[in-house]
Design a protein around this nucleic acid. Structure first.
Lengths: 114, 114
DNA sequence: CCTACTGTATTATGGCACTGATGCAGCATG
DNA sequence: CATGCTGCATCAGTGCCATAATACAGTAGG
C-alpha cells in the first residue's frame, strides 16, 4: 500500500481530517509545533513542514510567538478544495483503473453492505 | 498528485496496463530490457527492476538468453489480484475520504455524464 | 563456431526528499 | 525585564532512486 507516505504529509492529513471532522473550527488555536510533535512522536521540524502546507493554502493565520489559528472560512474552503481536487483529478484515475480491472461502482456499493 | 512515482513503478504500470488491455497475452514475449528502455527513454537497469517485480509475482517466466514471457494465466491472475487489492485495501480509504469531503457515488456517476 | 542478441550481477556516483539538532526571532505574562 | 512559550531559518546526515560503465551467463541463427 501507500504506507511510504512522508511523515509530514501524514501529519498534514491528520490535521486536515480533524478540521473536516469538526474538531478544529475557524478561529481555533492549533497545537503548537512542539506539542504536536511530542504527541505524535515526530520531529518538531517535520510538524512545522506540515503546518507550512496549511499556510501556503491560506488555511491558517500565523501569530508568531503565539501560535497558528484556523483562518476564517478555512474549514469550508478546505472541504471545497478537496472536493474539487477529488472530482477533477483523483476520481478520473480511479475510474480508469476500475474499468481496467473490471470493477464497477455497483460492486463497491455491494461490498459495503457487510 | 502522485506524479513523483519512481520510474521503475511507472514502467511496471505501463506493462501491467498493456497486459490488462489485452496487448500482451499469455505466452507472449515481452520487449527486451534494452529495447523497452530505448523505447521509453529509460535506463535498461530501471526497466530490469520493473520486470523483476513481475517475476516476484510469478507473472512472467524468464528464458535467459531469450527473453521474458507472460506466464500461463498471468493476465487473469493479475486482474484478479488487482481487483482484490482494490476492493480490500484501496477502496475503503477512498470511501472514507469521500465521506469526509461530502462526495457521494451518485455525484461521481453524474460527473461522468459530460 | 561465432556473432548477436537475450537477462543479470557488480560497483560507483549524483540527485533529491525526508529527517534531525541547534540556534535565533517574536510575543505574552507576571 | 525576565522567563517561557511560540514559529522559523540554517546546516548536516541519511536513504532511496536513477544513471552509468562494465562484465558475465545463456540462447538462437547463420
Amino acid at each position: 500500500m501507500n504506507n511510504k507516505q512522508p511523515v509530514y504529509l501524514k501529519l498534514f492529513e491528520t490535521i486536515a481530517h480533524a478540521m473536516l471532522d469538526g474538531k478544529y473550527k475557524d478561529g481555533d488555536l492549533l497545537p503548537s509545533v512542539r506539542a504536536f510533535a511530542n504527541e505524535q512522536g515526530a520531529n518538531p521540524l517535520t510538524v512545522a513542514k506540515a503546518y507550512q502546507l496549511f499556510q501556503e493554502r491560506g488555511l491558517v493565520t500565523v501569530k508568531r510567538g503565539v501560535g497558528l489559528f484556523v483562518a476564517d472560512g478555512a474549514v469550508q474552503k478546505l472541504k471545497a478544495d478537496e472536493r474539487q481536487n477529488f472530482i477533477n483529478n483523483i476520481w478520473p484515475d480511479i475510474d480508469k483503473h476500475m474499468r481496467r480491472i473490471g470493477v464497477s461502482v455497483a460492486d463497491l456499493v455491494k461490498s459495503e453492505m457487510h
